[in-house]
Design a protein around this nucleic acid. Structure first.
Length: 570
RNA sequence: CGGGGCGUAGCGCAGCUGGUAGCGCGCCUGGUUUGGGACCAGGAUGUCGCAGGUUCGAAUCCUGUCGCCCCGACCA
């Protein structure tokens, strides 16, 4: 392909709205352009990357026995009402009306539509199992889209749904998909971890996330340094034993003036106290009623654990107004003592003889706090989120290491969560009507592109893994002599004949500008045709990740490039 | 939805104690250049996000509104 004929509008400066590295580089490199918040167009280069990801997914899923379909993006409301998600999904489900006033939804996921498809045509155990997937745009009206392709509102997702006669068979398929996902992400050249995960709004009883490791990731994960246990911190089990309740180390609570300092960090600095001497007082609204939850200042509260401890459906951090109502103070100065609200304390809080917490009075904290003395009625529960350094709950000997991750895939065992309400039934061998057992499996296609950039870049630009690169080789000429162009065109033809994806930068630019663009858009292999080398029959080969080029004989270069590409894709 | 910030040329920004808009990059033309984002000369490009208001006069002041970004809450 000729560079001059492609739309590759690279930018020297990124739009100020782009902050995250993958966002900045994908915009600067001319891969994507924004149409609205969280809604992006794929430019030619971006489309090439996405097409490569999709191809890998198709190949591996087809190999695993799944079949591709394409469901509509616009779903009638009735389907969503049938599953109950028309109510439950909330404002993230984009709803629309047609000219007759009938309700529709833009598909954020397709359990309902797929269930409908299957229940119409699949009636017998003889037709099972079945695994159908699609690669399609999804729309989720996220509260806060961010970071370009990382969290868009419209994005491309591969979603697969499997249907089974028995739980055992669904488990077998779950494993089958898990293995396919491992192959897919390996082929994409990503460094990732499969971790145990919460099932969230999709539901079901078993679930793994595939997390691309990157410091900019939104998810926190832990994995054991001894066994193979790894989990999202939301889900991570902890080996905890309740310690002794500590006796108070101070005679009484003492108020401390902490003007304007609401965060543990600020108050800690002011009082010269470490975060682990603090008690974090969090006010939640649980099924409509306020409650107070406590964890040590240096810990994170795990909302799933709190939800389980409270046995409630809905749990939400209280609004600032409610915090003021409960505490009588501004946000940042809440304490658990003297409130008429149930208090749930993490077991670690009980072991603190002397602690700092909010005074329930704006600009004041208290020191000398002791849970047993000051809030004797508090219920002691496990509320802490697992973190690096904690002992592993699974093997008992190892310890957790903490990572950040970008969730690029998620597999769920659904059971009959959708098939029962949607009446996706079949007749078994005895002629009995039963709901099918289901699994569902998602991959964020466009998110993979962003995750790959997060993991593969330097200051000059992207360093695409070979499998995802929009082109495998870029040829640049350093000079305007006709023999340079002739040599470049010969090489382009040789490479094309070998099936290599080659971009020939034929623009009338100075070499420096071409090198900068080649680095920015991240082509893995670069050939430079220069006067000096060409005089000796040699061309310059530089790998995007290497600092220095090597000289290769002109006649041998096409084979050498083809070999390098094969090696990188193996 | 809470907190913070920003909307001026395609991109990055200045102008904001009121007097109808400017810089750099990019773009177009001509010339000189050609191994890490060249130089010179000339040129095009704006309903200053939108709507009201104050004023002789508004990018600038006031009110409202829309959009966008960041942090939080939320989230396959």
């Amino acid at each position: 392909m000729r560079y001059s004929r492609l739309l590759i509008p690279t930018l020297k400066e990124a739009p100020s709205e782009a902050q995250v590295v993958s966002h900045v580089m994908l915009v600067r490199g001319g891969f994507i352009r924004k149409l609205a918040a969280g809604i992006y167009s794929l430019m030619p280069l971006g489309m090439r990357v996405v097409a490569k990801i999709e191809r890998i997914i198709r190949e591996e899923l087809t190999r695993s026995g799944a079949e591709e379909v394409l469901l509509p993006m616009v779903h009638p409301a009735e389907l969503w009402q049938e599953s109950g998600r028309w109510q439950k999904y909330g404002p993230e489900l984009l709803r629309l009306k047609d000219r007759k006033g009938a309700d529709f939804a833009m598909s954020p996921t397709a359990e309902e539509a797929m269930c409908d498809l299957v229940r119409r045509d699949v009636k017998s155990y003889r037709q099972l199992p079945l695994n159908l997937f699609q690669i399609q745009d999804k729309f989720r009206d996220e509260m806060r889209p961010r970071a370009g392709l990382m969290r868009g509102r419209e994005f491309i997702m591969k979603d697969a749904y499997s249907f089974h006669a028995t739980v055992e068979d669904a488990h077998r398929e779950y494993k089958n998909m898990y293995d396919a996902y491992v192959r897919i992400f390996k082929r994409c050249g990503l460094e990732f971890r499969a971790v145990e995960a919460d099932t969230g709004a999709i539901g079901g009883s078993m679930s793994h996330e595939f997390q691309v490791l990157a410091d900019s990731g939104e998810d926190a994960i832990v994995s054991c340094d001894n066994c193979d246990y790894a989990a999202n911190v939301e889900k991570a089990e902890m080996k905890r034993t309740a310690g002794e309740a500590a006796a108070p180390k101070a005679a009484a609570l003492e108020e401390v003036h902490t003007p304007g300092a609401g965060s543990i960090e600020e108050v800690g600095k002011m009082m010269k106290a470490k975060a682990n001497a603090f008690i974090k007082t969090l006010i939640y609204i649980a099924d409509g009623k306020p409650i107070i939850a406590l964890v040590r200042g240096d810990r994170e509260l795990n909302e799933l654990k709190l939800k389980a401890a409270l046995a409630v459906e809905a749990l939400e951090l209280a609004s600032d107004a409610l915090v003021r109502e409960v505490t009588g103070a501004n946000v940042g100065f809440a304490g658990p003592h003297g409130r008429s609200v149930p208090v749930y304390a993490d077991m670690e809080v009980r072991e603190m003889g002397w602690a700092v917490t909010g005074a329930n009075k704006t600009d004041y904290h208290v020191k000398g706090f002791n849970l047993g003395r000051d809030v004797p009625e508090a219920k002691i529960v496990d509320l802490r989120t697992a973190a690096g350094g904690d002992p592993c709950a699974r093997c008992g000997t190892g310890h957790y290491k903490a990572y950040r991750g970008i969730e690029v895939g998620h597999v769920f065992f659904l059971g009959t969560k959708y098939s029962e309400p949607m009446k996706v039934n079949f007749l078994d061998a005895e002629g009995k009507d039963k709901p099918m057992v289901m699994g569902c499996y998602g991959i964020g296609v466009t998110r993979i592109a962003a995750a790959a950039v997060e993991q593969n870049h330097d200051d000059d630009g992207i360093q695409w893994p070979m499998a995802l690169a929009p082109f495998q080789v870029v040829i640049t000429t350093a000079g305007r002599e006709p023999e340079l162009a002739a040599a470049a065109e010969t090489l382009e033809a040789e490479l094309t004949a070998r099936g290599v994806e080659v971009l020939y930068d034929d623009r009338d630019e100075r070499p420096g500008a071409k090198f900068k663009d080649a680095d920015l858009i991240g082509i893995p292999l670069r050939v430079t045709v220069g006067k000096r080398g060409l005089a000796e029959g040699k061309l310059e080969l530089k790998k995007r990740r290497d600092k220095e080029p090597t000289l290769v004989a002109q006649a041998a270069l096409a084979d050498e490039l083809a070999r390098l590409i094969q090696e990188a894709l193996a």
